[in-house]
Simulated assay, not measured.
Amino acid sequence: MNVNLRGVFACLKYQLRSIVDGGSIVNVASAAGTYGGPMISPYIAAKHGVVGLSKAAAYEYADRSIRVNAVCPGWTDTVLAQEFIESLNGLITPNTVPQLFKHFAKPEDVAGIIVFLLSDDSKFATKGVFAIDGGYVA
């Protein structure tokens, strides 16, 4: 909770203080922030919190032309994810995760949407929750 929710809250607090005349903030939640499931309830609660915090901030700071969105990546091929998957002794693979694409996302797949949301090309997008999960929560 301290990293996954409180950390985002602290960053958001200082970002909002520093933006003077409009801007964009993108918070990273997780696909777990859009569903419920067993065994990881603190993580799921924290990521739901990031989604809710993003929506509330978007509403509260719209009068200052600050856009706030959340991205919700699914399984992403990172060192941390690989270490976690290895610790589960083969219980999770791209073929066992119920997603439409039979591979995990690459970090650049997530980064592309973040870059778009931070750009002027998305100047009317706020309070959004964007799944980047290969259809995992579909």
Rank of each mutant, 00 (worst) to 15 (best):
residue 1 M to S: 14
residue 1 M to N: 11
residue 1 M to K: 08
residue 1 M to I: 12
residue 2 N to S: 12
residue 3 V to K: 00
residue 3 V to H: 05
residue 8 V to G: 02
residue 9 F to S: 07
residue 9 F to P: 00
residue 11 C to S: 14
residue 11 C to W: 01
residue 12 L to P: 09
residue 12 L to Q: 07
residue 13 K to Q: 15
residue 14 Y to H: 15
residue 15 Q to C: 12
residue 17 R to N: 13
residue 19 I to H: 12
residue 19 I to R: 06
residue 20 V to N: 11
residue 21 D to M: 05
residue 22 G to E: 02
residue 22 G to Y: 00
residue 22 G to D: 04
residue 24 S to F: 04
residue 24 S to D: 06
residue 28 V to A: 13
residue 29 A to K: 08
residue 29 A to G: 07
residue 32 A to E: 13
residue 32 A to H: 14
residue 34 T to W: 00
residue 34 T to A: 04
residue 34 T to Q: 12
residue 35 Y to L: 15
residue 36 G to S: 12
residue 38 P to Y: 04
residue 39 M to W: 15
residue 41 S to K: 05
residue 41 S to F: 13
residue 42 P to G: 02
residue 42 P to F: 10
residue 44 I to R: 11
residue 44 I to S: 04
residue 46 A to E: 02
residue 47 K to P: 13
residue 48 H to C: 11
residue 50 V to I: 11
residue 50 V to C: 09
residue 51 V to A: 04
residue 52 G to F: 01
residue 52 G to R: 02
residue 53 L to F: 02
residue 53 L to E: 07
residue 54 S to L: 08
residue 54 S to T: 13
residue 55 K to C: 01
residue 56 A to W: 09
residue 59 Y to D: 10
residue 61 Y to H: 15
residue 61 Y to L: 06
residue 61 Y to C: 07
residue 64 R to I: 10
residue 65 S to C: 10
residue 67 R to H: 10
residue 68 V to W: 07
residue 68 V to T: 06
residue 70 A to R: 07
residue 70 A to I: 11
residue 71 V to G: 01
residue 71 V to P: 02
residue 72 C to E: 05
residue 74 G to M: 03
residue 74 G to S: 03
residue 75 W to T: 05
residue 77 D to T: 02
residue 80 L to E: 11
residue 80 L to C: 01
residue 83 E to Q: 15
residue 86 E to C: 03
residue 87 S to F: 08
residue 89 N to K: 14
residue 91 L to W: 00
residue 94 P to V: 11
residue 95 N to V: 03
residue 96 T to L: 14
residue 96 T to E: 14
residue 97 V to D: 06
residue 101 F to L: 14
residue 101 F to I: 14
residue 102 K to V: 11
residue 104 F to H: 03
residue 105 A to R: 01
residue 107 P to H: 02
residue 109 D to A: 12
residue 109 D to T: 08
residue 109 D to C: 05
residue 110 V to T: 11
residue 111 A to I: 08
residue 111 A to D: 09
residue 112 G to I: 00
residue 112 G to W: 01
residue 114 I to M: 02
residue 115 V to E: 12
residue 116 F to D: 03
residue 116 F to P: 03
residue 116 F to R: 00
residue 116 F to M: 10
residue 116 F to A: 00
residue 117 L to Y: 03
residue 118 L to P: 10
residue 119 S to E: 13
residue 119 S to N: 12
residue 119 S to D: 14
residue 121 D to G: 13
residue 121 D to N: 14
residue 121 D to T: 05
residue 124 F to K: 06
residue 124 F to H: 14
residue 125 A to T: 10
residue 125 A to W: 08
residue 125 A to L: 15
residue 126 T to Q: 05
residue 127 K to R: 13
residue 129 V to T: 15
residue 132 I to M: 04
residue 133 D to T: 06
residue 134 G to Q: 08
residue 134 G to A: 09
residue 135 G to W: 09
residue 135 G to T: 08
residue 136 Y to S: 07
